[in-house]
């Protein structure tokens, strides 16, 4: 017996197996592709709307609105001012439109991740069975190479924004789910007992006690999700998502060093703005933990 060669299945059967699965998937795509595309059409509209709003409005207005939003969340002049400066520089170097596209994409993806992820996290916190079921799926989602997501998504939706959004959301959603679950589970048992003793319903417990106390942790999850969406938006440029990722891809293919670095730095700038803003917001949510008045 040959002990060196691994006893693998024959080439023929392996090929047959792959062909069957791929064939099945292709049939599925043919049968359901249009339906799925129709379901996700509103997503496309939303994304286009935000993109147009950011790109077609006067730039100074967009900048003012962004700065105001950043200040409202962070309540920090330093962060707001730094963001404005960074955006001005990025715009001056000709990357305004791509930056706006990327911001729109990240905003939509984060919104979807939050809207879908928080309820899943809540369910996981309420039920240990749900927790045991979802945790391995999240583990898989986080370790699977990000490119692999792109394949089935592209098979169903083709190239474009919608498959981009779906791939990004799948990649970036685990932290919101995990940290929502963790935040709720960390709520002190005696406070929960007090809520129960005063006759709270489960919904009241969730609304008045669990979610508010978990909020800082949930915000940490949202922050991570934003960072991961941003990273994945660049990868998703391979399937036709426009924005700062595309010039980077082009720069790699044609070895344009400066172009790559400039767009890379623009992405870094957005990342820092989003990170500092959401972190400052998260800190503000923990106001009650400070001593002194």
């Amino acid at each position: 017996m040959d002990l060196i060669r691994f006893p693998e299945m024959s080439r023929g059967s392996l090929r047959a197996m792959r062909q069957t699965i791929d064939g099945g998937f292709r049939d599925f795509t043919r049968a359901w592709g249009d339906t799925l595309e129709a379901i996700f059409a509103p997503l496309q509209d939303l994304l286009t709307l935000i993109e147009n709003l950011l790109i077609r409005s006067p730039w100074i207005l967009v900048l003012a609105v962004l700065a105001a939003g950043i200040w409202l969340l962070s309540r920090s002049w330093k962060i707001a001012l730094g963001s404005v400066l960074a955006l001005l520089v990025v715009g001056y170097f000709g990357m305004w439109e791509d930056t706006m596209r990327t911001i729109a994409m990240v905003a939509v993806c984060t919104l979807i991740a939050v809207v879908v992820g928080i309820p899943i996290g809540i369910l996981m916190a309420q039920s240990n069975r749900m927790n045991a079921m979802v945790t391995p799926i999240l583990d898989m989602m986080q370790t699977m190479p990000s490119f692999v997501y792109l394949i089935p998504v592209v098979m169903i939706f083709g190239l474009g924004k919608v498959p981009g959004v779906i791939a990004v959301v799948i990649y970036a959603i685990p932290p919101v789910i995990r940290l929502t679950n963790l935040g709720i589970r960390q709520v002190a048992a005696d406070v929960l007992e007090a809520a129960e003793a005063f006759g709270s319903s489960s919904w009241q417990k969730l609304r008045d006690v669990q979610l508010p106390l978990a909020l800082p942790t949930i915000m940490a999850g949202v922050n991570q999700t934003i960072m991961m969406s941003l990273a994945m938006v660049v990868v998703a440029s391979m399937i036709g998502v426009r924005g700062l990722g595309q010039p980077v891809l082009q720069a790699i293919n044609q070895q344009y060093f400066t172009m790559g670095v400039m767009n890379g730095l623009a992405i870094v700038a957005i990342a820092i703005i989003m990170d500092r803003t959401t972190q400052a917001y998260g800190k503000r949510l923990q106001k009650h933990t400070e001593a002194g008045k």
Binding site: D190, A194, A197, L213
Partner: peptide, 22 residues
């Protein structure tokens, strides 16, 4: 039981169990 707790009983706890965010 919920109504009973709301209308007939109230509880004070050893470690206070106040809501820290309120």
């Amino acid at each position: 039981l919920r109504d009973f707790r709301r209308q007939k009983t109230a509880m004070v706890f050893q470690k206070f169990a106040l809501l820290p965010h309120r």
